[in-house]
Amino acid sequence: MTQLALVIDLNVCVGCHACVTSCKEWNTSGWAGPMTDQRPYDADPTGTFFNRVQTFEVGEYPNTETVHFPKSCLHCEEPPCVPVCPTGASYKRKDNGVVLVDYDKCIGCKYCSWACPYGVRELDEMQKVMKKCTLCIDRITDESKPESERKPACVLACPTSARLFGDVHDPDSEASVAIRERGGYQLMPEWGTEPANHYLPRRKTRIQIFEDELIRADNPLDKEHPLPAATGDTLDDVSF
């Protein structure tokens, strides 16, 4: 069994929204498109997006930390949005675990979006069907592309490589190794949805050093405590 997923490293995400724009660019004109906008240059603009980057502040000033948080469909292994669909439009692909919507079967009842605790499904205002992240299914399965390009648009766009893509069921994939070795976790584990996408936590690298280790006791260049002045004969004074 293959379960394709993203692993998002919060430690290196800088919140640039490159994944958001590349996602929209690729998908609006691809298999999953269009991702329509309403009133894009007017007051109160809105539109369909599969991916967002949100920003959170953790802690209280001045001890705060800014966390940029990319958010898209997590391609749950137990997707609550799939069994509730009355028409079978919402489905999880057997071969690679990607959760998709068949726009030709969707009746736009929005029930699947109610059943998703993460809020990652959006009803397209023009086409009136439910849309969501496809992991760029038309790209990752396109065998005419070289292997290096068979990745979601957001992964290729990320300037800091905060997004890893791979099979989380393969223990040796880059994604699985990252989850295992760098503390990857799932969102809202309390609902048993088993999201395939994982997040890597923010990390601080600190060296452990003690105060007395910063002061060298036998510093020869120490100006505050000059070496005792020579008294009496030195070796140089000894004459033959």
Binding site: V20, T48, Q54, T55, E57, T66, S113, E122, L123, E125
Partner: peptide, 11 residues
């Protein structure tokens, strides 16, 4: 939260 990622509305 400091930003939800957009200033217009969404679904």
């Amino acid at each position: 939260q400091r930003s939800m990622g957009f200033m217009g509305g969404s679904f």
